[in-house]
């Protein structure tokens, strides 16, 4: 019993360490080919597969600088706070049918939403403690963005939870049916878009808009701490992709789900992660007011309408 828990946590840790690297490498290569380049080709001989390992070595060698005017302890703590919530979220995402999940949790969906929301504290810590006005601007932008998009994020997730009649993530995946793809389509879109905004990926990367704010709240970070922030971004992609896949795309459902369900889940996650990368290459960054407008005037009403629809269908079916 005890060593089973250890095994599960160990496997989640392995996923935590490998999946973001795979996503990062895919981003390198996909982005390069979308821009008619080749991307990394040298590190690791075959098509630069070890580029991110080399990057990690490079980051580890760099000097760890804390600006003199910065609030030292807060500054140094922020990257860890940014990373931790995503690690916790990975624990409860179901990989396959049965109990192929890090930790069964009765209110798993709620846990995920709550913990993802904690990431904004790390952003504010980093932004304020850097003692840099561009960092602070980036942090305030991030806080406004994350607070705003939390709403459609939670509402669209609530829609699918209502449809499934449970808050447990494995329960939602088990209750999923193919026709939900159509019925929950607005919620899928709202969830994915606000998820993108939650992890501050382009086109929602105003907090780190490099042409305006240098690098936003990450401006003053170097070496391993900066690498932690980057890692948090890529774990964020994994988390949002796997959540979208599990909640809206049916997770492990597919042909021969009993034996290769985990593969379906990974494939769907990968497909969503590819779309995340694709959007970064294809679309320009939104302006700050466009961002808030999209959230409050499009996504929130859409999510509310979806909730009404879901409730109506549930009542009609029961």
């Amino acid at each position: 019993m005890t060593w089973e828990v250890v095994l599960r946590v160990g496997l989640v840790a392995v996923a935590f360490l490998t999946l973001p690297l795979i996503v990062g490498q895919t981003e390198h290569k996909v982005m390069a080919h979308m821009q008619a380049r080749l991307g990394p080709m040298y590190a690791g001989a075959f098509h630069g597969w070890a580029q991110l390992i080399a990057d990690g070595v490079k980051f580890a060698q760099k000097e760890d600088v804390t600006p003199r005017a910065a609030d030292g302890p807060v500054f140094r703590l922020a990257p860890a706070v940014a990373l931790l919530p995503y690690l916790l979220v990975l624990l409860v995402i179901p990989l396959g049918p049965g109990d192929l999940v890090g930790q069964q949790l009765d209110v798993g969906l709620f846990f995920v939403l709550a913990v993802v929301g904690v990431g904004v504290v790390a952003v504010l810590m980093a932004a304020w403690a850097s003692a840099n006005k561009y960092s602070l601007l980036g942090g305030l932008r991030a806080a406004a963005q994350l607070l705003g998009y939390e709403l459609p994020f939670v509402l669209s997730a609530a829609s699918v939870a209502m449809a499934a009649g449970t808050l447990s993530l494995p329960g939602i995946v088990a209750a999923w049916q193919p026709w939900w793809l159509l019925w929950q389509l607005p919620a899928t879109i709202v969830f994915f878009v606000s998820g993108l905004a939650e992890i501050r990926r382009p086109p929602f990367d105003m907090p780190i808009a490099d042409s305006e704010l240098v690098f936003g709240y990450m401006t003053e970070y170097t070496g391993l701490r900066f690498a932690f922030f980057l890692l948090a971004e890529y774990v964020g992609i994994v988390v949002i992709s796997s959540l979208t896949a599990a909640l809206f795309l049916g997770g492990w459902h597919g042909p021969w789900a009993e034996s290769v369900g985990w593969l379906w889940m990974l494939l769907k996650t990968g497909a969503v992660a590819f779309v995340v990368i694709w959007l970064r290459v294809a679309w320009p960054r939104l302006r700050e007011d466009q961002l808030q407008r999209l959230c409050w005037l499009v996504l929130v009403p859409l999510a509310l309408a979806q909730l009404v629809l879901t409730a109506g269908v549930r009542v009609a079916l029961s």
Binding site: H33, M34, R37, W278, V281, A282
Partner: peptide, 15 residues
């Protein structure tokens, strides 16, 4: 934009 990038993705690059 999506179409253009996808097309470039599947076109062999000349680097």
């Amino acid at each position: 934009g999506l179409a253009v990038t996808l097309k470039t993705l599947v076109t062999p690059s000349t680097t």
